[in-house]
Design a protein around this nucleic acid. Structure first.
Length: 578
RNA sequence: GGUCCCGUGGUGUAGCCUGGCCAAACACGCGGCCCUGUCAAGGCCGAGAACGCCGGUUCGAAUCCGGUCGGGACCGCCA
């Protein structure tokens, strides 16, 4: 009999009692009592206890050895059941035990609550994945993706693969590029997303497209970002926002039902961008806790407190929110928060009651308290700065307070749509840039603002946020060649550049374009929300580090000079600034 | 591009602020012995780190300073 068809260690139940089985697995733990030895045998499905009564057989078995154990499943003696194990009602009485392969002592213990350094875990990822929690997460991820396939397929969406080797573009994120051997000095770009291809599929008349696609962006990493993301990419023709939002609400409801057995409420609440930034200081608010931010700029217009006054005079804002029961926060904790605010670029952090009170008029203090909705036991955190900076800092503090004081209500699934958003944003240099991407359709009623007040033009764009994680985002696209060209021009692109970068799309738009729109959902972030982690590496089998390294494979690495020559590539080592 | 945190046996931590009492403590793991019912088994015994690396200060550095490498968090960036 092959081990492949043998029962799984973790799948045995009381109903299997009496069966003669052969088990294959890893030794998770050995408890040697002299006359009798218990081995916990682990496979992807779980752990089962096997009992070895021949001391000599068990004595040379060690942790992480791969073994074959043959014996009879039987109910455990009364009182010896282990309710902590799914297999805890039974055990396997070993008649034959064979060591298939030995193991060195692993660099960290293979158990769910490992505290091993993440670098070590990444180097030995194959051991890390042996941890039941990791294996469960990967299996859950598979089930989520399968549920997505079923749902999309049932609605007549078809999965179409798009190329990995695309044309580079200076827009958006930095491209990963691949040298062309046959075209010296020219490069392909790996996809940041199949955006243009899926729009072209709409021109092609496909109507309903989806793909579970890998996308690569060469950007600096964060706790919630990886280099290679997996996204559900969707595009559909003749649709409105309501069609897309409804489709995705139905999708999440279906995934939650099928995979988690949970009913979630649809439709999801909606919040426009402006309100999200004001009340939560972020475009992806976590609604599992309250902490609503208030603007108190007007109340402090005449204040004599210099910190607020100078910010307001410079055209900035003063924002605050109340920390319930925050009066008990220590000076040390407040200093930590202030340090964090400064780290995010704020000039400082004020709190009420606090040292700044004496610079404020009586009425100003009470106005702030009232706006924040603060009671006598509460503490109000106040930041004065340029609007965008104040929003960022308040959002950061709001999240930090919730984390420190464990304010997020567990077990809640707080979905929401941020919609509508804005078509354009201001970049660091004060230049106009797109908010979502340059193919996003302007809000019809705002069309005449395009030439005059572009920043006020709303976009037919939407983000779906779950528990503070942006899980998807998309838009209704421009399907008119002239409007598309106009938007490119407002973005400051020359005719020549438009031609070179997007000529294929504009050409296609001359052959009958259906109105279309779509959305992309990040599977990695979705999984983060589902398992409740803030570390995206927890949901990826083989993730890279913050500096884009694969510690297990040792990638990136140099390649043979011969290969470089063939690709017409010359490496210029970085010069150190003196 | 920037700010911050971390780097001590196989693993996780303590020690570092206030240099010498630290060839460094504790727990887990590991090795040996004992033990027929445990399941984080238990008991006894034992091995194992000159403190990421380089340089400096000092009579003396795990402890102070500079640099460097590695990991992480955040700002910028991420259409």
């Amino acid at each position: 009999m092959s081990g492949f068809t043998a029962p799984h260690c973790g799948s045995l139940r009381a109903s299997d009692a009496g069966k003669e089985v052969e088990l294959y697995g890893w030794v998770a733990r050995r408890r040697d009592h002299g006359g009798v030895t218990f081995l916990d045998l682990r496979d992807r499905w779980g752990i089962v206890q096997v009992v070895v009564r021949t001391a000599s057989v068990a004595s040379d078995v060690r942790g992480e050895y791969v073994v074959r154990a043959r014996g009879a499943v039987r109910r455990r003696p009364a009182g010896a059941e282990n309710p902590k194990l799914a297999t805890g009602d039974i055990e396997v009485d070993v008649e034959e035990l064979e060591v298939i392969s030995k193991s060195k002592t692993p660099p960290f213990e293979i158990e769910d609550d490992v505290a091993a350094d993440e670098a070590t875990r990444l180097k030995y990822r194959y051991l890390d994945i042996r941890r039941p929690k990791m294996a469960r997460t990967l299996e859950l991820r598979h089930r989520v993706v399968q549920a997505i396939h079923r749902y999309m397929s049932a609605r007549e969406f078809i999965e179409i693969e798009t190329p990995m080797l695309l044309k580079g573009t200076p827009e958006g994120s930095r491209d990963f590029i691949v040298p062309s051997r046959l075209h010296p000095g020219e490069f392909f770009a790996l996809p940041q997303s199949p955006q243009q291809l899926k729009q072209l599929l709409m021109v092609a008349g496909i109507g309903r497209y989806y793909q579970i696609a890998r996308c690569l962006r060469d950007e600096d990493l964060r706790a919630d970002r990886v280099v290679e993301i997996t996204q559900l990419d969707v595009e559909m023709s003749f649709c409105t926002e309501e069609d897309v939002l409804g489709l995705i609400e139905g999708l999440w409801a279906s995934v939650w039902k099928d995979v988690l057995g949970i009913d979630i409420k649809t439709p999801f609440p909606r919040l426009d961008m402006q309100e999200a930034l004001l009340k939560y200081g972020t475009d992806k608010p976590d609604l599992r806790y309250d902490l609503v931010i208030a603007d108190v700029s007007d109340a402090l217009r005449e204040t004599s407190a210099t910190v607020f006054r100078s910010a307001l005079d410079a055209g900035g804002v003063v924002r605050c929110f109340s920390v319930p029961g925050g009066k008990d926060m220590s000076r040390r904790e407040l200093d930590e928060l202030a340090l964090m605010a400064k780290g995010a670029g704020a000039k400082g952090l004020a709190w009420i009651p606090g040292p700044l009170d004496r610079h404020l008029a009586e009425g100003e203090v009470s106005a702030i308290m009232a706006a924040a909705g603060a009671g006598v036991d509460d503490l109000v955190l106040v930041v004065a700065d340029r609007r965008r900076k104040a929003e960022t800092v308040m959002g950061l503090l709001r999240r930090e307070i919730a984390r420190r004081r464990k304010l997020a209500r567990q077990g809640e699934w707080q979905f929401l749509w941020v919609y509508p958003m804005y078509l354009f944003e201001e970049d660091d240099q004060g230049n106009l840039t797109y908010g979502h991407h340059p193919f996003t359709s302007p809000w019809p009623e705002d069309m005449d603002l395009l030439g005059t007040r572009p920043y006020d033009v709303r976009a037919r764009a939407y983000d779906c946020v779950l528990n503070g994680v942006e899980v998807s985002g998309g838009s209704i696209r421009i399907h008119d060649r002239e409007l598309q060209e106009r938007v490119f021009e407002i973005l400051g692109m020359s005719r020549e550049k438009i031609r070179a970068q997007f000529g294929h799309l504009l050409d296609a738009f001359e052959y009958g374009v259906p109105p279309h729109g779509g959305i992309a959902a990040g599977i990695d972030r979705l999984m983060m929300a589902i398992i409740g982690t803030e570390n995206i590496r927890d949901v990826v089998a083989f993730p890279k580090t913050q500096s884009h390294q694969d510690l297990m494979l040792g990638a990136p690495s140099p390649v043979d000079q011969a290969l470089l020559d063939e690709l017409h590539i010359k490496v210029v080592p970085p010069t150190k600034p003196s």
